[in-house]
Nucleic acid binder design. Structure first.
Length: 107
DNA sequence: TTAATGACCTATC
DNA sequence: CGATAGGCCATTA
């Protein structure tokens, strides 16, 4: 089990219609300092079909300017397709769509 | 092995 | 409130 795999497990557990931040994923992965590593892990993205990196945004809820899905707006479109709304600044309402793993009801 | 970079976050001026 | 500097961890050359 590598640091990356742990991060992938967290990202893959993100439900549709919600988004998570790098710092939060890093924290769930085990260390809050892995924020940069999380971004790197998603950058390599060995399994984009099972790793919805488009549901991962930064602390400000903004998407990456150098997204690899075919355009930063592509990520926004995917999230909107999930039901996530965006602001005129291209940011997500973390206060409304921020993923809460503790509220998942356990399972 | 050392040096440099990165889809980040936090604190300070 | 806006911009700049530093720190952290892992990967790559």
């Amino acid at each position: 089990m590598s640091t990356f795999e742990r991060i992938y497990e967290i990202v893959k557990k993100i439900p549709a219609g919600k988004v998570a931040t790098y710092g939060q994923i890093a924290l769930l992965a085990g260390n809050p300092r892995w924020a940069r590593v999380v971004g790197y892990a998603l950058h390599v993205n060995p399994d984009p079909e099972h790793i919805p990196c488009f549901r991962v945004v930064n602390r400000a809820g903004e998407v990456s300017p150098a997204f690899a899905f075919g355009g930063e707006n592509m990520q926004i479109a995917l999230l909107q397709n999930e039901g996530v709304t965006f602001t005129a600044e291209g940011r997500v309402d973390l206060k409304k769509y921020l993923w809460h793993p503790e509220t998942e009801g356990g399972n």
